[in-house]
Design a protein around this nucleic acid. Structure first.
Length: 152
DNA sequence: GCCAACGTTGGC
DNA sequence: GCCAACGTTGGC
C-alpha cells in the first residue's frame, strides 16, 4: 500500500463536500498535469491512503484523510465540451487523462497547516514543502505519513 | 531540439 | 491582487 497527498481548492471542492457525496466518494477529475496523471494511472491502488490538502485558501494545509476507491479510469470530463476541463486532444479511444475515485475516511480535528509542516525537520524532503512545488498529486512516504498523523 | 512566450498554480 | 515557479506550446 502507498500513501499520497492530493490538493483541492476548498472553494471548489473541500473535505466536507467529499463527506456529503453519495457513498462519500467522488471522481478526482480535472487533473491536467502529466506527472500527476502518471501517478494516478500507473501507481495508485484501491485502498491507498490519501492526505486531503486544501490549497489556495486562508490556511493551506492537510485537513483529513481519504482513500483510493477505484482503479484508474479515463477522466470523462475531458470528453465533455460543456465541462471546464474539456480537452479536445483527449480521444475516447485513447484517453489522455485518467482519474481515480476518492472516498472520505476522516476529517482532522484541526488543520495541519503548511506553515507547521514546513517547520518540521522530519518533513524537509517532502515535495509539498519544497519551493515552487505545484504538483496536485504527490507521493508521501510511510515515515512522513506516520509523522504527520502524530502531529494531531 | 532550443527557447521565448504564455498560462497556471498557489503561497503570501 | 501580486508574483515566483513551473509546465506547455509552437516557431524556428
Amino acid at each position: 500500500m502507498q500513501y499520497w497527498l492530493m490538493k483541492s481548492e476548498p472553494d471548489e471542492f473541500n473535505i466536507d463536500d467529499l463527506k456529503t457525496r453519495p457513498n462519500k466518494t467522488e471522481p478526482w477529475d480535472g487533473v491536467r498535469n502529466y506527472q500527476a496523471r502518471n501517478m494516478m494511472r500507473d501507481q495508485m491502488c484501491v485502498g491507498d491512503k490519501v492526505f486531503f490538502y486544501h490549497s489556495n485558501c486562508e490556511v493551506p494545509g492537510i485537513v483529513g484523510i481519504a482513500k483510493i476507491a477505484s482503479k484508474p479510469y479515463p477522466d470523462f470530463t475531458a470528453f465533455d465540451k460543456q465541462d471546464k476541463h474539456y480537452d479536445a486532444k483527449s480521444d475516447p479511444a485513447n484517453p489522455r487523462w485518467y482519474l481515480v475515485d476518492v472516498k472520505y475516511v476522516k476529517k482532522f480535528k484541526r488543520t495541519v497547516s503548511l506553515t507547521e509542516l514546513k517547520q518540521c525537520e522530519a518533513l524537509e524532503n517532502m515535495q509539498l514543502v519544497r519551493k515552487g512545488n505545484r504538483l496536485s498529486v504527490m507521493p508521501v512516504t510511510e515515515q512522513q505519513w506516520d509523522f504527520i498523523n502524530s502531529m494531531l
